[in-house]
């Protein structure tokens, strides 16, 4: 999961990783390419990636186009996501 260090500080990485189960880690390892694409996209939207991983990490295993579709169907959601990533809850992600 070292690739996550490209998006988090060391402290954030350690904190995030400490709360994961073995199954979670398996997903991060087997879906690395997808996770990288999704995190790069969220970074381009200037979302808080640490909070995103803490509260909404299951999203990063979804296909990027399905995530984009949800966001594009809710045009006003991006500022809300920047404010608090839990606002993904409002669009069913």
């Amino acid at each position: 999961m070292e690739y996550l260090k490209n998006f988090l500080t060391l402290e954030e990485y350690e904190q995030f990783v400490s709360q994961l189960t073995d199954e979670d880690v398996s997903l991060f390892l087997t879906h690395e390419e997808n996770v990288l694409l999704v995190l790069k996209y969220f970074k381009s939207l200037e979302l808080n990636l640490f909070d995103l991983l803490l509260y909404k990490y299951p999203i990063v295993f979804d296909r990027l186009d399905s995530i984009k579709e949800k966001i594009e169907n809710h045009p006003n959601i991006i500022p809300l996501l920047k404010e608090d990533v839990s606002n993904f809850d409002l669009i069913g992600l």
Binding site: L27, D62, R63, S66
Partner: peptide
């Protein structure tokens, strides 16, 4: 469509 993958798995 690659949606809800973590839940499916």
């Amino acid at each position: 469509e690659g949606k809800g993958i973590a839940a499916i798995k």
